[in-house]
Amino acid sequence: MIWLSWRQFRVQALVAAVALILLAAGLVVLGRQIRDGGYSGAELREHFQGRVYLLDAVLLLMPALIGLFWGAPLVARELEAGTHRLVWNQSVTRRRWLTVKLLLTGLAAAVAGALTSALLTWAASPLDRFTGDRFSTIFFGTRNLAPVAYGIFALVLGIVVGLLIRRTVPAMALTLLALVVTQALTPNLIRPHLMTPEHMSAPVTAEVVRNLTFLGQQPEISGLKLPGAWVISTSRLRTADGATVPADAYGRCVAGSFDKAADCLGALNLHVDIDYQPTSRYWTFQWLESALYLGLALLLTALGLWRIRTSAD
């Protein structure tokens, strides 16, 4: 059964192996260039940030590719063509048939995710230490443990969707939709609350305002950065006594140029209340989110093993 599963999977595995070898070679070259050039932090950002972002985008796409091209067709194609009946009639139980496929491809997905994540984490580590932005969506999802869990979840999701739908193309489409939704919701709605955030108040000086990404018509700000922390949410601008800054006073400040608005708001002695996650919790978040995705993969596996036992030929 293992040999048969390998023969059915070998084309996808060989294509992936070639792609991984090329990607690994590129990551090794990039890592050596970053380390051997004697660059300062600012120079690292200037010369290598674009290339690292491109590689981050590739790794963010890997789980979707695994789910689409390894997971969804693996069972759906056999059910659609009827070739599963030959195996089921050779004293191989349905659950064993599915379990072998899950284990073989799951191991391949774990190895692919671990290899690429380890190499990118190593290659980009000098730049990551300079930027210090470990919790951002693109960095958190492409470093260390998380990519391995993402790949396994995507694979199992694709296999189970294919088992339920029994048609390859619709299974691929639904798998892609589910992965897009999952990867959009997790960093924005789930990850910030895996642990209870810390709270603090931070002064809004003119320098702070100049470093913001958003200054709208209402007394609220966006893009506030806190050294050594991941800012989850900020309150509206508050005066020294804790009240929301009057709209007319805020409006007068932002009516002029951005520099004048920064000086004007800085003179009002304002502050904001912040919910944040300390960077010291990074590894805890990596383990928690990986456990979440692996737990979902186990639940999907249980669903698939139950469904295949009760499904008609």
Rank of each mutant, 00 (worst) to 15 (best):
residue 160 V to F: 01
residue 300 L to D: 00
residue 172 M to P: 00
residue 246 P to L: 02
residue 297 A to S: 04
residue 77 R to S: 12
residue 268 L to Q: 15
residue 158 G to S: 08
residue 145 L to F: 06
residue 280 S to M: 02
residue 149 A to I: 08
residue 120 L to F: 06
residue 213 T to I: 09
residue 290 S to M: 03
residue 312 A to M: 10
residue 170 P to R: 03
residue 62 M to N: 15
residue 72 A to C: 11
residue 119 L to T: 08
residue 44 L to I: 02
residue 83 T to F: 05
residue 127 L to W: 00
residue 109 A to F: 05
residue 51 R to G: 15
residue 236 R to P: 10
residue 186 T to W: 06
residue 281 R to W: 04
residue 84 H to F: 07
residue 243 A to R: 12
residue 300 L to C: 03
residue 27 L to C: 01
residue 136 S to Y: 06
residue 26 G to I: 04
residue 24 A to W: 04
residue 96 R to K: 10
residue 27 L to F: 02
residue 284 T to M: 02
residue 203 P to F: 04
residue 27 L to D: 04
residue 79 L to H: 03
residue 175 T to L: 06
residue 45 R to K: 12
residue 166 R to L: 03
residue 244 T to R: 14
residue 291 A to C: 01
residue 130 F to W: 05
residue 173 A to M: 11
residue 110 A to C: 05
residue 2 I to M: 13
residue 112 A to Q: 12
residue 24 A to R: 01
residue 204 V to A: 05
residue 71 G to T: 12
residue 301 T to E: 06
residue 115 L to F: 11
residue 168 T to L: 00
residue 92 V to K: 01
residue 23 L to D: 11
residue 291 A to Q: 00
residue 205 T to I: 08
residue 90 Q to F: 12
residue 122 W to N: 09
residue 190 I to H: 02
residue 217 Q to Y: 13
residue 96 R to N: 08
residue 95 R to H: 02
residue 185 L to G: 09
residue 40 S to Q: 08
residue 253 C to H: 02
residue 171 A to N: 06
residue 286 Q to V: 04
residue 200 M to K: 11
residue 98 L to Y: 00
residue 45 R to L: 13
residue 18 V to Q: 07
residue 201 S to L: 13
residue 225 K to P: 06
residue 263 D to N: 10
residue 76 A to P: 00
residue 3 W to Q: 12
residue 245 V to K: 04
residue 161 V to K: 04
residue 111 V to S: 06
residue 70 W to P: 05
residue 53 Y to K: 13
residue 108 A to E: 10
residue 67 G to M: 05
residue 126 P to S: 09
residue 25 A to S: 09
residue 50 G to N: 14
residue 267 A to L: 11
residue 113 G to M: 03
residue 308 I to G: 01
residue 218 Q to I: 14
residue 197 P to C: 05
residue 205 T to A: 07
residue 105 T to C: 11
residue 89 N to R: 12
residue 64 A to C: 13
residue 99 T to G: 01
residue 311 S to L: 14
residue 177 L to I: 13
residue 103 L to A: 07
residue 39 Y to I: 07
residue 251 G to K: 01
residue 298 L to F: 05
residue 72 A to V: 08
residue 313 D to G: 11
residue 17 A to I: 14
residue 52 V to L: 09
residue 156 V to F: 00
residue 251 G to Y: 00
residue 247 A to F: 14
residue 12 Q to F: 15
residue 186 T to F: 07
residue 178 A to R: 06
residue 218 Q to E: 15
residue 118 A to H: 13
residue 144 N to A: 12
residue 173 A to L: 09
residue 285 F to W: 02
residue 13 A to I: 12
